[in-house]
């Protein structure tokens, strides 16, 4: 394939990955920023979202769009509900102790994963996209007859992939408005800044924590609903998003929303471009190397604040 179309294809593929990664990593970053909990089970909430999406989409007859919209509502609610339950039953009981929560969320990871295996089974199942038509992209060249437009082989994308990029951007902007303009957002930010002071001002910190943990899981589930018509729902699908989310959150700066989004776009796009031009394995190697470099030279991340 010629360089120009090749590069654009790589960027498009990378953008889809980046969009989904930004949503997933935002959930992880939010939980860490406000609760100081490293949620190792985050990938499983992603998987839970995909599996619930499959379940909802297949139990609703009619146009696939109906099932998809229902899944986009139900899956984040279910994943969020499970997370709130996990927070109340487990994390609260260990008093959000950093070491204990890591071990506890590893436990939650296995419980969710194995329950999915026992109920949903080991198969990968597809969810039909609400709409999906192929768009062949044109390219130009200066041939014998001068400037001409043609449609190169394999150079195209689908409407659904473009929708994923757009939807993720809308959700991210919406989430930013929610955090910066709404009252709940204010309460959450207050809790992040100083938990004890927030308690002194009458903020129900324990309820805020449950809400944040649920919200983080719901974001991951929403990302999964978006990706599941492209990939398939499978009980082991939580591993990669977890790893990539950690990479993004570390590079962006733990707890920094802006850093998370910038890093997600950076990692997502570079993953797409390096994968297409070289190999997907090399892309993972470079991302991991980047984490190591950030940890050595800028431990607080690109946009993180230095600890006082």
């Amino acid at each position: 394939m010629e360089f120009g179309p090749h590069l654009i294809l790589a960027i498009l593929e990378g953008a889809v990955g980046a969009a989904v990664l930004a949503l997933t990593a935002l959930g992880l970053s939010l939980v860490f920023g406000i609760m100081r909990v490293v949620n190792v089970a985050h990938g499983e909430f992603f998987m839970l979202g995909a599996i619930v999406a499959w379940w909802v989409a297949t139990s609703i007859a009619g146009h696939p769009a109906l099932g998809f919209v229902a899944a986009a509502v139900v899956a984040p609610l279910v994943a969020g509900g499970v997370a709130v339950l996990g927070d109340r039953l487990v994390l609260k009981r260990v008093h959000y102790d950093p070491e204990a929560t890591i071990v506890a969320t590893i436990g939650i990871l296995y419980i969710i994963q194995q329950l999915a295996l026992m109920t949903y089974g080991p198969e990968a199942r597809p969810v039909e996209p609400p709409f999906n038509s192929r768009i062949a992209l044109p390219w130009f060249e200066f041939g014998e007859t001068g400037f001409e437009i043609y449609y190169p082989w394999g150079f195209g994308t689908t409407t659904y992939k473009l929708f994923v990029i757009g939807a993720a951007a809308v959700i991210l902007v919406g989430f930013w408005l929610f955090l910066s303009r709404s009252r709940i957002g204010l309460v959450m930010r207050a809790t992040q800044l100083d938990r004890e002071m927030a308690t002194a001002f009458g903020i129900p910190v324990s309820r805020v924590y449950s809400l944040v943990f649920g919200l983080g899981a719901a974001l991951a589930a929403l990302a999964a609903v978006l990706i599941v018509p492209i990939q398939q729902a499978h009980y082991l699908m939580g591993g990669d998003p977890l790893l990539l989310s950690f990479i993004v959150v570390i590079i962006g700066g733990l707890g920094s929303i802006r850093g998370t989004i910038v890093a997600a776009v950076l990692i997502g796009l570079s993953d797409g471009i390096i994968s297409v031009f070289f190999s997907p394995t090399l892309a993972k190697i470079i991302a991991t190397l980047l984490v190591a470099l950030v940890l050595v030279f800028r431990p607080q991340g690109l946009f993180g604040k230095k600890p006082a």
Binding site: M1, L9, A10, G17, W153, G154, Q231, P280
Partner: peptide, 24 residues
């Protein structure tokens, strides 16, 4: 789980695609 990024390596003068894949 995602394959599109492997396909641009298919040369343009290919006459036949031979594919065999396994996994979920």
């Amino acid at each position: 789980t995602s394959f599109t990024r492997y396909f641009p390596a298919i040369p343009r003068d290919t006459e036949v695609i031979y594919h065999v894949m396994v996994g979920p």
